[in-house]
């Protein structure tokens, strides 16, 4: 899992950043998540599904609740992205703020972190049906709002 570990670190970090809006705090929470995940005695013998990593992260974020705000787009965010993507990203970011938080979370988990629907149900506690419904609703709202802003 060593190479994957790097990838999972990034994903959890992204998730925490979405939740708390602060880079340093997000990283602290990410590291705490990993430490907790590996320290559970039951992990040692039975293993835990990956979704559990997110559950831990989620709980930690809730405990450290802070009003989230998207930080200004800084130089170091987009490293090698082509300009159009960055521009689109900024546009989407504005639009995302208008969606309910749960729908934003679903979009992140499903399309950015690439989790399967089954895993998402374990993390969010929603039913499969609810996950499908809300995700597709989020997408159509997103598309609609994007058209309105005339950016897509």
């Amino acid at each position: 899992m060593s190479a994957d570990l790097q990838e999972h670190y990034d994903k959890i970090y992204r998730y925490c950043y979405f939740k708390v809006g602060n880079a340093t705090l997000a990283e602290d929470l990410t590291q705490e998540t990993f430490l907790k995940y590996f320290s559970q005695n039951s992990y040692i013998e039975h293993g835990k599904k990956l979704a559990y990593l997110y559950v831990i992260a989620r709980n930690l974020c809730i405990d450290t609740f802070q009003k989230k705000q998207f930080e200004e787009l800084k130089e170091d965010v987009a490293t090698v992205e082509p300009f159009e993507r960055v521009e689109l990203g900024i546009a989407i970011r504005q639009v995302l703020k208008k969606l309910p938080e749960q729908e934003q979370e679903l979009l992140l988990l499903r399309f950015v972190n690439g989790l399967a629907v089954g895993e998402i149900t374990a993390i969010t506690g929603l039913s499969r049906f609810a996950v499908y419904r809300k995700t597709s609703s989020a997408l159509s709202t997103l598309k609609r709002l994007m058209k309105e802003d005339d950016f897509s």
Partner: peptide, 8 residues
């Protein structure tokens, strides 16, 4: 390696 990881 713990058992689950060993099998994986």
């Amino acid at each position: 390696l713990p058992k689950v990881r060993a099998m994986e």
